[in-house]
């Protein structure tokens, strides 16, 4: 599998200018286009934004580092309830609350990841699945967190502008991480962990870093969700939600960032378009998963980025492509 795309050599300033321009465009849309847009449509777009954040975290953990996490919704729950607690009990700006919620999720990721990522194999899948279960039982049994009835009376702050500001920040952060030496180590862990260990690289540390970063962005997605409809419920973070996020990453393609993001947008919007045949939605969805794995196991853009499709062949990345002849 090819590694992350090598960046074209260019001034970092240009990149940051582009990023600033993108932020400006997001807030321009928020100020001038959103007031005239159907709220139903805006709602779908905001939900797509949250899926994007959750998915980019898992794309890093699963797609680039090859660690199978089945409890991403658990980290979303930590972020959501962390944000809610901060926002309710302090007068701090809600977006700082979202950041702190993300940190809480990252800390949870550290607690889960440290003991588990020492092991190879499917243990992480089992433990993260268990973590997802425990965190929900814990929330349901804690009156302080609203119990099974959920937490209500939260401020409504999440809008298009904030959601996509976070999405852009997340995409920039993860892209830069993947293009750093860390990113090379992540890809090597996925492709051959034993070889990497024999070179003296601390693979556990690399896996924990990827896992904690992935948990952080899931936590941010959860935090935004908690400030979106004024209430959160444990049932929003069940195992099925983890599977949704997993499906987006896998269908989009492991080892790709843009592929899963496209899949996240499509699979979040799809249920809305499929309303008339809502009963069959999950059946279509699961068949899609099975057929994709059999027919196109690498997913939509496995190991590639969207931009690679538009590049001319000679300019194709070769920096870390394992099989480059």
């Amino acid at each position: 599998m090819a590694g992350p795309a090598a960046p074209a050599v260019r001034s970092p300033l240009l990149g940051y200018a582009l990023f600033a321009a993108a932020i400006a465009v997001v807030w321009g849309i928020e100020a001038y286009a959103i007031p005239w847009t159907d709220p139903y449509f805006t709602g779908i777009v905001i939900r797509i934004g949250m899926s994007l954040l959750a998915v980019m975290g898992l794309a890093l953990v699963l797609g680039f580092t090859g660690q199978f996490s089945l409890g991403h919704a658990g980290f979303m729950a930590v972020g959501a309830y962390g944000t809610a607690m901060v926002v309710i009990h302090t007068g701090i700006h809600p977006m700082v609350g979202v950041f702190l919620g993300g940190l809480a999720a990252a800390f949870a990721g550290l607690l889960v990841g440290l003991p588990t990522l020492r092991l190879t194999g499917d243990y992480l899948a089992v433990v993260t699945l268990g973590f997802n279960g425990i965190i929900l039982v814990f929330i349901q049994n804690t009156p302080f967190l609203g119990g099974a009835a959920g937490l209500t009376g939260l401020p409504v702050v999440t809008n298009f502008g904030w959601t996509f500001t976070w999405v852009l920040l997340g995409a920039l952060f993860i892209r830069n991480l993947l293009n750093s030496s860390h990113g090379r180590v992540f890809a090597a862990v996925r492709d051959n962990e034993i070889a990497l260990r024999s070179l003296g690289v601390d693979t556990t540390r690399a896996k924990v870093i990827a896992f904690v970063v992935g948990a952080f962005w899931a936590g941010v997605a959860g935090g935004l969700l908690s400030l979106y409809r004024a209430s959160i419920f444990p049932s929003q973070f069940q195992f099925e939600r983890s599977i949704d996020i997993l499906a987006m990453v896998v269908l989009g393609g492991t080892g790709s960032l843009s592929g899963p993001l496209i899949a996240a947008a499509a699979l979040t919007a799809l249920p809305e378009l499929l309303r008339p045949i809502a009963d069959y939605r999950m059946i279509i969805y699961s068949l899609l998963l099975i057929v994709t794995m059999i027919v196109r196991p690498q997913g939509l853009l496995g190991g590639k980025e969207l931009i690679d499709l538009f590049r001319r062949r000679p300019a194709a990345p070769k920096a870390s492509g394992g099989k480059a002849a």
Binding site: I243, L246, A247, V250, Y285, S286, L289, I290, M293, I294
Partner: peptide, 8 residues
């Protein structure tokens, strides 16, 4: 992942 798909 196929196993998860079959289960769903």
């Amino acid at each position: 992942i196929t196993a998860i798909g079959v289960s769903l």
